[in-house]
């Protein structure tokens, strides 16, 4: 008897295999969501439709293509992060699948992390698919414009042709777009973790989604509130404490909108990118820990 007990006491406090099992299962669950495909197809259509926008000059065309594509990616990933995460835990509670999982030797922390990682993987896949679509459209348009330019300038001197081609290439793809996409992804990760946190104390999906939509908008205005709070001291104490509350509770989502400036050719210093990424990961971690804390106290 005692021997047997000894054999099963070797329990690992954290097991990647268990988290991975929950992650892959969550990913399977999420890829069965119709809303995922609806959103993804919508985003792809939006990106793809830019290919027909040939009425403008090539600079305008490329700019709008980039704006629309990256805007669509940003909104789609954010929306997907919220919608997909909101139902994750409530659904398991409602279906009582959570009982069978947590009745196994699975710490609740692993359950939360596994679920979240599933969403983050889904977001990564969507981001990759959309990026591929976007780059393909951009490449096709760039080649078309290059051909057209060559045809029009066939008689011009070599130097001028090179200048013109360089102008086309530089307005098509700037390398800063890639860190921009990474930041879009991290913003979605942050929103997913925050949604998970909200969903641990909300009881309905709708409640979570509504709260998250509020957080999304207020989060974009958080910087404004924060700077007023820290710089203006002429406001009354009610306004002052209200601004403080907004600044402390909400994340600064505007920080992650680097892509708005990147599409127009602004260069992103490596340091800035790194700091933004670290902030994004920091937010995601904290919200995951908070979600775990609330979930530990939850009566199932």
């Amino acid at each position: 008897m005692s021997n047997e007990t000894a054999a099963i006491t070797r329990h690992r406090a954290f097991s990647v295999a268990r988290v991975f099992a929950i992650t892959t299962n969550t990913l399977t669950e999420l890829t069965r969501l119709k809303v995922f495909y609806v959103l993804l197809i919508f985003a792809l259509l939006l990106i793809g439709s830019s290919i027909f926008m040939a009425r403008l000059t090539f600079q305008q065309e490329f700019q709008i293509l980039k704006d629309v594509s990256l805007g669509a990616m940003s909104i789609f990933t954010s929306l997907l992060a919220i919608v997909a995460t909101a139902r994750l835990i409530p659904q398991d509670l409602e279906d009582r699948t959570v009982y069978t999982i947590l009745a196994k030797p699975v710490p609740r922390f692993e359950y939360i992390v596994g679920k979240l990682t599933g969403v983050l993987l889904l977001l990564a896949i969507s981001t990759l698919v959309m990026s591929a679509m976007f780059l393909a459209v951009l490449y096709i348009r760039e080649q078309a414009v290059l051909h057209e330019t060559l045809r029009q300038m066939s008689a011009a001197p070599r130097e001028q042709i090179d200048d013109a081609l360089r102008a086309v290439r530089s307005s098509a793809l700037n390398i800063d777009i890639f860190p921009g996409i990474v930041i879009i992804y991290l913003k979605a990760c942050l929103l997913a973790a925050l949604t998970l946190f909200v969903s641990t104390f909300a009881t309905t999906n709708i409640f979570t989604i509504v709260v998250m939509v509020f957080i999304y908008f207020i989060g974009h205005l958080q910087a404004t509130a924060r700077e007023y709070w820290l710089q203006e001291h002429s406001t009354g104490w009610i306004t002052h404490s209200f601004l403080a509350l907004v600044a402390l509770i909400f994340p600064d989502l505007q920080t992650f909108n680097l892509v708005d400036d990147i599409v127009v050719g602004a260069a992103i210093p490596l340091g800035l990118f790194a700091k933004t990424a670290v902030l994004g990961i920091f937010y995601t971690t904290i919200y995951t820990l908070l979600a775990t804390f609330v979930f530990y106290g939850k009566e199932l």
Binding site: A223, R226, E227, L230, A247, L248, I249, P251, D252, Q254, T255, N257, L258, D261, A266, P269, L272, K275, T276, V278, L279, F282, Y283, I286
Partner: peptide
């Protein structure tokens, strides 16, 4: 919220210097 403030502000200042936002 208090912990994140310095990081947010540092980024904000840098964005300003780069004429973002």
């Amino acid at each position: 919220g208090v912990m994140k403030l310095p990081g947010e502000r540092a980024l904000f200042v840098q964005h300003r210097q780069l004429h973002f936002r």
